[in-house]
């Protein structure tokens, strides 16, 4: 059809395969690395959707920061302690049935509600850092301020949780 759609589908298939591998792999370090592949593929999808700034944020924050945090905690705890035992017999088939129902419903909606292709190149400036910055600091300035409080809470909470042991001694 057109080259952008082919590119999109290839990236999507890579993303789904990496996600399946991530869920299936027993070794958690490999899982974290597959997760990085998923995040990078998502960043490519964002670029196709005219969101270059969000794509770069995705790479730096998710693939950079968050995954390093995950790998660090996995290394700290050690993967040999992660013994996987099955406790409930019926939850695996139930998970597949319910998830299949979810996907079937979404597929039905996707085919019958959003049949017409509506994606077009809106305008060349859409999603540029300039436009996002203006929107963030004019229309959405209150959420930005609330987010700063949230980050402060997260920082204080993490420090309290991490140092609790030392304080008790």
């Amino acid at each position: 059809m057109d080259i952008l759609l082919a590119f999109y589908i290839i990236t999507g298939v890579i993303m789904l395969l990496a996600a399946i591998a991530m869920v299936n792999t027993r070794n958690m370090v490999y899982s974290a690395l597959y997760m990085v592949v998923v995040f990078l593929a998502t960043a490519v999808l964002y670029l196709i959707y005219q969101a270059p700034l969000i794509a770069m944020i995705q790479i730096t924050v998710y693939a950079g920061g968050i995954m390093v945090l995950f790998v660090f905690v996995i290394m700290l705890i050690g993967t040999d302690k992660m013994i996987h035992e099955e406790h409930i017999r019926w939850h695996r088939p139930l998970a597949f049935i319910l998830t299949f129902a979810l996907v079937a419903e979404t597929a039905y909606l996707a085919v019958y509600r959003f049949g017409q292709p509506t994606l077009t190149l809106v305008n060349q400036d859409f999603g540029s850092p300039n436009e996002i910055g203006l929107a963030l600091f004019q229309k959405y300035v209150l959420p930005v301020e609330v987010t700063s409080v949230l980050l402060l809470v997260a920082m204080v909470g993490t420090i309290v949780l991490a140092f609790r042991k030392e304080k008790m001694k």
Binding site: L5, Y8, F114
Partner: peptide, 13 residues
């Protein structure tokens, strides 16, 4: 361009 239902299916999967 990309149909919206393709992205819906990808996201659902």
């Amino acid at each position: 361009m990309i149909p919206l239902n393709v992205s819906l299916l990808l996201s659902a999967a």
